[in-house]
């Protein structure tokens, strides 16, 4: 690890900053995809970003993950300015897209070795962590089989194990539960909750409102690249009719905002 990066990473989170702070983030593809977005996610918090298709959720996450350059605005990950020090910021984060990014010709254990090497994880810690993750995710018996024969759910689990092996402080998950069966979805949810308990921060996008309602500490609703509402599920529901569900609140907010726009 380069000295500058090591110092930046070592100093991360000391200033009392949140795990993620996004200020006035903008991105345009001809039309504004993300428009002066402000977000803050605390350590030990799961933040769900909801929004209709094309609202700018994935674009936001990709900018935070350093995969897409922002037009303007600030991104701070554990106090590190991610736009100025992308490598230092990436050392503390993990990105899991909706389609698992794997090497079909590698086995799960080899994939985890590779990821641990990229993040420069201590070999002993990585070995133990790989062992634990494969056990928890029910992949231990398939650890020496190549990923090419795996189902989508199994691939997603391998990718999740890869995202967690370096014990990231901030996890960014794009539709992590889409296409998973109930058993695998449960394993993934349990693992995420366990990471939250250990102090990691998670920001995820999902179309499954029930997941956001049950798992998220706070929910942000984004439309046309702007954050139109934010709060706990109860807070968002309380603004509408008595007995309204998160689905009702989501539809009310996105419709009224859509009309206003």
């Amino acid at each position: 690890m380069a000295n500058g990066v090591a110092e930046t990473v070592a100093g991360a989170g000391r200033s009392g900053s949140g795990a993620l702070e996004v200020r006035r983030l903008c991105k345009s593809f001809g039309k504004a995809a993300v428009d002066h977005l402000d977000l803050r996610v605390e350590y030990g918090e799961l933040y769900a970003l909801l929004g209709p298709n094309g609202a700018g959720k994935t674009t936001t996450l990709r900018m935070i993950a350093g995969l897409l350059p922002a037009d303007s605005g600030d991104i701070a990950i554990c106090g590190i300015n991610a736009r100025l020090h992308p490598v230092a910021a990436k050392r503390l984060t993990a990105w899991l897209p909706d389609e698992p990014m794997l090497y079909d010709k590698l086995t799960p254990i080899e994939y985890l070795e590779f990821v641990a090497g990229l993040w420069d994880v201590n070999p002993l810690a990585a070995r133990q962590s790989a062992h634990d993750l494969l056990q928890i995710l029910d992949l231990f018996d398939q650890r020496h089989e190549r990923c090419e024969g795996f189902s989508r759910g199994m691939k997603q689990k391998v990718a999740l194990a890869g995202a967690l092996i370096h014990d990231p402080r901030l996890l960014m998950l794009d539709e992590p539960l889409t296409g998973l069966d109930a058993a695998i979805a449960r394993q993934v949810k349990d693992l995420l909750v366990e990471r939250i308990r250990r102090g990691a921060a998670i920001i995820l996008t999902t179309h499954i409102l029930e997941v956001a309602e049950r798992l998220a500490d706070r929910i942000g609703i984004i439309q046309n690249g702007r954050l139109i509402a934010q709060g706990t599920a109860a807070e968002l529901c309380a603004d509408g009719d008595p007995g309204a569900t998160l689905e009702d609140a989501f539809l009310r907010l996105t419709r009224s905002n859509g009309c206003a726009a």
Binding site: V121, P123, E145, E148
Partner: peptide, 26 residues
């Protein structure tokens, strides 16, 4: 295809090939 890959010897913690270094891993 692929699901029936031949079984390999059991892997036990401590016998993996985890190494440091991003370039080496790549």
């Amino acid at each position: 295809l692929g699901a029936a890959a031949p079984a390999k010897p059991r892997w036990v913690p401590g016998h993996g090939r985890f190494r440091t270094g991003a370039a080496r891993s790549l």
